[in-house]
């Protein structure tokens, strides 16, 4: 997905000097699609974080209003089949869809990312075993892997986080490996080795700061995929479980009344789309910037 060979008009490669967070940010904002992506993402984040504060009712309280009520002044978007306030559910519904993928990707990088960092630096048999292991994990598509885990352990929040983390591991490992291989022969690494620094010290103090660019870009991309995976799962009824307010679950629950009340489906659908499109545009611009800068050889 992140084949970043393209260069867009309005983007000047090599302009940003050296790695580091300010340069990363400038590179992101230099591309027009990057700016749109950041704007959309920030808007959705504000909605997700502060939306619940503005919710007029509890998102899970039933029989607040007659079931399937059309929009009114008391219930801005009407009520669903259990008489719950749709507007309040919508405002609450972004929490799980952001939090679960976020925790999953953090887990991915804390395990597979670190493992690959050390294994690639060590090289040899360790590197080979880790590579083969992650390659094998890729032999089933992500959705099937998650479905298998949910079938085995049930759709609890913990299982969902671990399942999404597992599907992201091979890709994250590959990104880390590519980035480390690009740095491993650099002068500063050899200097550190010549000084006799321990492996862990070289990896954490020398290599890690210099691969943060590609890792940050990949991190954002994986959260997008996590959001897509989780909302798909909730839509299938195997992700976030009732009575929780979640955009994916709202679509699943309102699907049968799509003919009569399409708004209850369309609103969370647009919210999920805006979130994943924003994140994807931003992370794609970031990947392109990092690759064109040359410190993210893959």
């Amino acid at each position: 997905m992140s084949i970043a060979v393209l260069q867009q008009p309005g983007e000047a490669p090599g302009e940003a000097p050296g790695p580091g967070r300010p340069a990363l940010w400038r590179g992101l904002m230099a591309a027009p699609d990057g700016r749109v992506g950041v704007g959309l993402t920030v808007a959705m984040l504000l909605l997700i974080v502060f939306g619940p504060l503005a919710a007029p009712y509890s998102p899970t309280a039933i029989n607040l209003a007659p079931a399937n009520q059309p929009p009114s002044f008391e219930h801005l978007l009407g009520a669903d089949h259990l008489g719950r306030d749709v507007f309040s559910r919508f405002l609450w519904g972004g929490r799980s869809i952001l939090a679960i993928p976020l925790m999953a990707v953090i887990l991915t990088y804390a395990t597979a990312g670190l493992l690959s960092l050390v294994a690639t630096y060590r090289g040899g048999a360790v590197d080979l075993v880790v590579c083969r292991f992650f390659e094998l994990m890729m032999s089933l598509p992500a959705l099937l892997k998650i479905l298998l885990l949910v079938a085995a352990f049930g759709p609890t929040t913990g299982v969902l986080i671990v399942a999404i983390a597992i599907t992201n591991m091979p890709g994250a490992s590959r990104v880390v490996r590519g980035a480390v291989l690009g740095e491993i022969r650099a002068d500063y690494v050899q200097a550190a080795q010549a000084r006799g620094e321990a492996t862990l010290s070289v990896v954490v103090r020398e290599i890690l700061p210099n691969v943060l660019g590609p890792v940050a870009a990949d991190f954002a991309l994986r959260i997008t995929w996590g959001i897509i995976a989780l909302s798909t799962l909730s839509f299938l009824g195997l992700g976030v479980q009732p009575p929780e307010a979640d955009w994916g679950l709202m679509i699943q629950e309102s699907r049968s009344s799509l003919q009569k009340a399409p708004l209850i489906t369309i609103l969370p659908a647009m919210a999920i789309a805006a979130l994943s499109i924003g994140l994807n545009l931003a992370s794609d611009a970031l990947v392109r910037h990092v690759t064109s800068q040359g410190n993210g050889r893959r």
Binding site: D33, I227, T232, F235, I251, L258, A269, A273, N280, L281
Partner: peptide, 21 residues
Amino acid sequence: VTGLLVLASMPEFLIGIALYL
């Protein structure tokens, strides 16, 4: 290319729901 990227970031079930609607 931007349009393709937008389409690529849509979950499959949203594409399907749009067609269904």
